[in-house]
Design a protein around this nucleic acid. Structure first.
Lengths: 222, 222, 222, 222
DNA sequence: CATGAATGAGTCTTCATTCAT
DNA sequence: GATGAATGAAGACTCATTCAT
């Protein structure tokens, strides 16, 4: 790709940087920013501490880079999922699938992601995280517009504020990812996105005088 | 003599302890366990460091006490909301309301709560947090049984695994709380629980050949 | 005794002081000056910390008082043993016996005593210990004069500097006390002082051409 | 020596370690374990505190290393003195000389040594000191066997239990070292070992009917 | 007058960061 | 350019001492 065109020196540098960040990702995601020492990152990545400091001005800078990179990867994937010419329903399915793929391929990322978007953003550092959060908010808005467009195109009922629906689907996929993270066997992230989406698609409430008409195949049987 | 003094002394002690924990709550919730020093907690609570250590064996102990207390308060409220003789729907409404009340009365608690139940629990301390998590899991199970009972009593459609529905509602409310936390003006936590519940109650998908029949009052208008 | 004549108030005070010092003696002798807290002394003696400070200006003062008292008790006993009209040999026997009695009656005192006269005088406090040491030196000199007088009266051979002999007997009894302290069963402090004194009384060296003539009863048989 | 062959880095490390331990020895021997701060050791040895901790895991570790090193040095010297093919008398002389040499070359060591073998071992740390003490006991036993062998070979009278004789000579030399430590001018550690040994060699008691026959040259004249 | 709660200086220890080699 | 030894600021925790009750 792009890297192939770079001089060898530069390519090596990038590879080193990647190794450092990989080590840092694993450690930070397991133990958090303050519970990991530069010493450990150096050892795990098999570089000298001084070399680490050649690539990152300080510990914070390394963390910042990590968060930005991981959050970019996530946003790239989910943004791609909801952009395109497909039907809105299909976009939601793509989103659920893509999010699952990204995170299952990168468990360490989940913790980091949640600790920065959902968790008590320990505010490790001021200001910078606003960048991540801003991007996150922008994504939510364009996610909301998927619902809005679905409503406009009379594909979706206007059951709630599209932004709220976006937030709902975001948070529900998160919840599934958490369940999976803690007990992968018992709570697998569903392969079929509709397992998640049916909570939005189908109404829970059973009108007293209305017989159940929707297909039962995806319904739940105790 | 001593008997006369003891109650007052005890009351004072409790008040002091509360002040310490209040200061700690605020600081920990803002910056996390490792980013707060005992020095700071002492200053904020206006006690000497030594006095802090009279009440809590060490920093961890203080944090532990804080988490346990806050999580107890939360569980008490939501457990009360879903227990009782009401209809299942009413219980869900109670839950949404109660959760909103608890958290709006105690903003700092939210961060702490999420950092321990949802956030990338950096595993500040081993073992103890399992207590909090275990209680959380138990709550989720009894929350799920509300959905299950609703299904058994033909009040709810079997649109999904009751546990998933419980997790869904849990995470929706969390998401709403986060929105409110970040931009209280723009995203107030809804007074009407149905604003949140409609995401579950009503189906999003509009069957192509089915006219929209459900009441429009709680529907969304752009 | 003297105390009976004091007003009740005064007698009580003395008794309290004694209790404090008894607790302190036990603790200090077991763990040393720095490893014992005033808190502990207060608890062990069942007084409030503040009360301790009514009797002793500070921790050092308490320690000082303890050392002075114990060392006085010791010096009284051994001084009495070597004063009087008896033969020099008898005085040495009295010394060995008296020292054994004092210490066996007061194990805690041994450690304190050694830590201040022999051990690495941790120099807990400057200056004051010179008082103890000075008294110790004075005792050694008067102990030496026992040997000197024995030589003058042709009871003792002039095998060494009397002061050295005094030091030798002092240190040898100490060594026996240490052995006893560590393994009371295996190394009892001898009841018969001659077990110790024979090392001074009898010559170790066997002149090649001289048959052993001295009485064998007190000699050693493997 | 061996060190010359080490890489420069290693040699420097050893030299640094030596300097740290030298500073620590001086301070610990003067004021004891608890009365010396790492800060002080750092200042005295002219290293930063952090550097100290690169060499020793913690304060206790530094102390432990110190004790072990010093006690090894001592035991090596005295063990060498009493091993070998010489006559028993000669071994005792060697012991007295060797002990004097070791300690006079290393004044600080004396205090440390006594505080760990004789002094009220405040039990600074548990377990490890047993190693030092055990070695000390072993030495005493092999020292005792010198006396025993002398008795078997009819060189020594059986005036006392060989173990007691060993303890006696140990404690005599200690006592002499203490005298020297406190007033080097007035109480030099004798160059002639017989000054000390005569206390064992010659009998103090003068049989009434026995003229003094042993050589007077080493006897004491006031 | 006794009490013991409150204080905060002082201690050990960690770890981000620098810089000589 | 890479290295990792050296640094020392900062943090958790203890405990002698004071003083309000």
């Amino acid at each position: 790709m792009e890297e192939q065109k770079l001089p060898r020196r530069e390519r090596e540098k990038l590879a080193q940087r990647r190794e450092m960040m990989a080590a840092a990702l694993e450690l930070f995601s397991e133990r958090g920013f303050r519970n990991v020492s530069m010493q450990e990152i150096a050892e795990k990545s098999e570089f000298a501490i001084g070399t680490l400091y050649k690539f990152f001005r300080n510990k914070e800078d390394l963390y910042r880079a990590l968060i930005l990179e991981q959050s970019s990867r996530f946003h790239e994937a989910v943004t791609k999922a909801i952009e395109g010419p497909e039907e809105e329903i299909e976009k939601l399915r793509n989103f659920v699938k893509a999010k699952g793929e990204v995170f299952r391929a990168n468990v360490a990322m989940i913790r980091l992601y949640f600790s920065e978007t959902q968790g008590a953003r320990v505010n490790v550092m001021a200001g910078f995280d606003s960048e991540v959060r801003e991007r996150y908010r922008r994504f939510l808005r364009s996610f909301a517009s998927v619902f809005e467009s679905g409503m406009k195109r009379e594909r979706f009922r206007r059951i709630a504020d599209p932004y709220h629906l976006a937030v709902a689907l975001e948070s529900f996929t998160n919840a599934f990812l958490f369940l999976w993270l803690e007990e992968p066997e018992r709570h697998p992230y569903p392969d079929d996105p509709d397992t998640i989406l049916n909570i939005l698609f189908k109404g829970l409430l059973l009108p007293i005088d209305t017989p159940e008409v929707q297909d039962e195949t995806s319904g739940y049987r105790s």
